[in-house]
Write a protein that binds this DNA or RNA. Structure first.
Lengths: 145, 145
DNA sequence: TAGACTGTTTGATGGAGGTCGACCACATGA
DNA sequence: TCATGTGGTCGACCTCCATCAAACAGTCTA
């Protein structure tokens, strides 16, 4: 019992998947302890990712498209943490790795927690450039399909 | 402007207060950034304090009566952090320092967050003895007034 | 085949914070 | 006045984790 079918997906060697995708292990929010959720959201960079992700449709943002004050190595680390906390889902699309915020599932497990993060004004926490006055949605923008 | 009247109470030198009580600076939850709230609740010992505090009536538990796997120095530190995050209120009663969980105020500022902590099964997070079989409320108990 | 692009992994580093022992401050009671 | 009990402060230690640079691994296009 337990471990939701699509849960802790350590993929059982699926040949239809690329070698890269096979390393993508997801954790369902239902299996995440509160400790991990709080640890994940206690970092300002990760909360920024979550907020930016919430502002765009699912599967439209690759990891590299986020405006973060860290190198790609650190960025990669943060995405892994968010994945491990059941906050995001990832899928490989060519060379890019697209992201989705697990809104409903996560909110079902931790009611209200995600809302607090999304309600937090951007640039409030440290390690954030407090956003530039020119508004962030200049070029890439977050328009949908 | 701002800073709720009873807010960040760095008491303006009140002679009716003991020297000890004068050092008791409180922060109103409304003035607490999400970062501080998450930092405060990300520690398992502090969540234990919050849960134990929620299980007893206000102003009935002194700092020393909590069953924690740390020394009093660390304990004192944790209580200070909780106070600074607007999670608890403290009052000196003789040599003891009594505590109160700021349920309503904190929940108004961070809806749902406190509920998540209280819903967390005790002994789940690390650094907790997973509770002793004899039930915690043996001697001192938490009965109220 | 080579190059550009995207993302991960590894090893090292620095800082923040949890922890402790020791000492100090205050209140109470004998 | 002294002893006790409660709690805070200080300095030191130590672990964890965010961070980076460098090297590696796929994917796509030319």
């Amino acid at each position: 019992m337990s471990v939701r079918q699509e849960s802790n997906t350590a993929p059982p060697a699926d040949r239809t998947l690329s070698a890269r995708a096979r390393n993508l292990t997801h954790v369902h929010p239902a299996d995440v302890p509160l400790q991990d959720a709080l640890d994940a959201l206690a970092d300002p960079v990760r909360r920024t990712i979550v907020r930016e992700l919430a502002a765009t449709p699912d599967w439209t943002r690759a990891c590299g498209t986020f405006d973060l004050p860290v190198t790609k190595a650190t960025r990669s680390h943060h995405f892994a943490v968010l994945r491990g906390a059941g906050l995001i889902e990832q899928r490989d699309e060519g060379p890019r790795r697209l992201n989705r915020l697990r809104r409903a599932e996560f909110d079902a497990r931790f009611p209200g927690l995600l809302a607090l993060v999304l309600a937090e004004p951007a640039g409030t926490a440290p390690a954030e450039p407090a956003s530039d006055p020119g508004d962030g949605a200049s070029a890439d923008s977050g328009n949908g399909d």
